[in-house]
Amino acid sequence: MNPRFYPLAATIAIFVAAYAVCYAQFPYMLSTRVAGNLLTDNAYLGIVAVGMTVVILSGGIDLSVGSVIAFSGVFVAVMLRDSGLHPLAVFALLLLITTAFGAAMGAIIHVLAMPAFIVTLAGMFLARGAAYMLTIDSVPIAHPFYDLMQDAYWLMPGKGRLTLIGVLMLLSVLGGALVAHRTRFGASVFALGGGEQTARLMGVRVGRTTVGIYAFSGFMAGLSGLVFSVYTGSGYPLATVGTELTAIAAVVIGGTLLTGGAGYVLGTLFGVLTMGLIQTYIVFDGSLSSWWTKIVIGLLLLLFILLQKGLLRLTSARLSGAGTGAGSAARAG
């Protein structure tokens, strides 16, 4: 097998193994009902993690997404309450706002040559603050169109429900994978993650790409916010605090190199599902504290970081064994 698939294979193997363990203890976990719920419950996380994957592949980070999700929910709820606009119009408006928000952060990162960490940290406070400006309460969403969306599902064999938002997540993963792996924009993203200086020498338009990356992440965060509002049926400015970190964890467990340049969008889906699986297991068990989720996720993260280091070392060790000591330096650089 091509070594570039190793981390992805490891991610999928861990998911399958975890599912096998769950199945051995609770055979019912291998049912379309559980699978359907796994997709539905993690839909918003999966969507935002796709955006985060592209950002991390480029060597960046986007800390604003959790706040943007909260802002999106509140924005939609307040707009539906206070204006007569159709939800679809509100959705379009919201996606425009969050995409522009992401693009603006990307522009600042590029033009001012600021670290993405700081710029998106500012974005995080800004978006959270904007959500509070709209309301400080939880605003319920009561609109016939929302009822329609919440009830839209396909009954799989075995009475499992494949919901609209679950399908939306799978489509996002598909879309994200195409963008990252099958477009010139995607190639530029990987190039940036491999090294900005080299990418520039190879002809990458760094500014345009950076703006595109954060705009994409902003769009995905907005979409995730919409899905979250459908999922909860309300908008609440205190929602999804820390979701950006959960998304980063899902991306890393999905096999993407945190320093950028290597990874797969499909891996992120399995990262999200693995995290969801742990939660489901704890619910099934009933006696375990839900904090065990965090502990297992922490251990998994550690495992993946070690795995990535190990793979890197293996590659460079084999190269220097072939008599080219500069290999490891070039690889690390």
Binding site: F190, A191, G194, T198, M202, G261, A262, A330
Partner: peptide, 13 residues
């Protein structure tokens, strides 16, 4: 110092 990207495939480079 080779100015290609080690994290992309040979074909992509």
């Amino acid at each position: 110092e080779v100015n290609l990207l080690p994290n992309l495939t040979v074909a992509q480079n």
